[in-house]
């Protein structure tokens, strides 16, 4: 089982994402933004960071990287894709996910252990959680406020596509406390907080994040 992790210029969390993939028991394969070759991976992670310096808008330029053309093509036929933080922003800019991530209310860059609730365990990235599980993983971003129009919000809610929600006070102004969503098919998931920084108690606040990475193994093995 091979999980690709894309490195864009300005990606920060690609190594932690690859480490999380290995900790989950899969092979992590480095993918390069300028190379359209996905190297026969079974799933892809778009990691956090500041790809292309977040110039213009977060993810706006990364969306047009050669590797994204291949990822969009494969995502549309069911390949699991997880975008974390900047990766989530790229997925929205790519129109693989609806809505957009905008500047945090209060304008501060946040870096904090964040409680979230897992709201949908039917996706390939969340199937190893218990429905409604409350976990704590780091939230660290400046533009994490999920925004979309009312119609899209109703659709996300009614179709169960809000996969994770912030617990407690709204940290960034996200509509309906949204921390993560999926596409209609469920294979593409965007998540603002960082599970890859919480896979063991030595380096993270918890080990709660590991289940995102073991989930995709379960999903692929089950096929």
């Amino acid at each position: 089982m091979k999980v690709g992790v894309v490195t864009f210029p300005g990606s920060l969390d690609d190594r932690d994402a690859a480490r999380a993939v290995r900790a989950a028991g899969a092979e992590a394969v480095s993918l390069w933004h300028a190379d359209a070759d996905l190297k026969k991976v079974d799933a892809v992670i778009l990691p956090g960071g500041f790809s292309y310096g977040d110039y213009l808008r977060c993810g706006a330029i990364s969306r047009f990287a050669p590797v994204m053309t291949s990822i969009i093509e494969r995502a549309n036929v069911g390949m699991p894709v997880l975008g974390i933080c900047n990766g989530f922003q790229i997925l929205c800019e790519s129109h693989l996910l609806p809505g957009a991530l905008t500047r945090n209310v209060g304008l501060h860059f946040l870096c904090t252990p964040q409680p979230i609730r897992i709201e949908n365990i039917s996706t390939p990235w969340t199937n190893n959680f218990q429905q409604g599980a409350e976990i704590v993983i780091p939230l660290k971003n400046g533009e994490g406020s999920f925004q979309c129009d009312d119609k899209t919000l109703d659709q996300l809610e009614s179709e169960g596509r809000v996969i994770a929600r912030y617990v407690g006070e709204n940290p960034n102004g996200s509509r309906n406390l949204i921390a993560g969503i999926s596409n209609a098919r469920g294979n593409v998931v965007g998540l603002m907080p960082h599970p890859e920084h919480a896979i063991d108690s030595l380096t993270g606040p918890t080990a709660d994040g590991l289940a995102f990475f073991t989930s995709v193994l379960t999903a692929m093995v089950g096929k």
């Binding site: 500047r103 304008l107 925004q147 102004g173």
Partner: peptide, 13 residues
């Protein structure tokens, strides 16, 4: 410009 219905924290600041 941000659409009118989208919150603009920079403008508010």
């Amino acid at each position: 410009m941000l659409k009118p219905e989208i919150l603009d924290p920079q403008g508010q600041a």
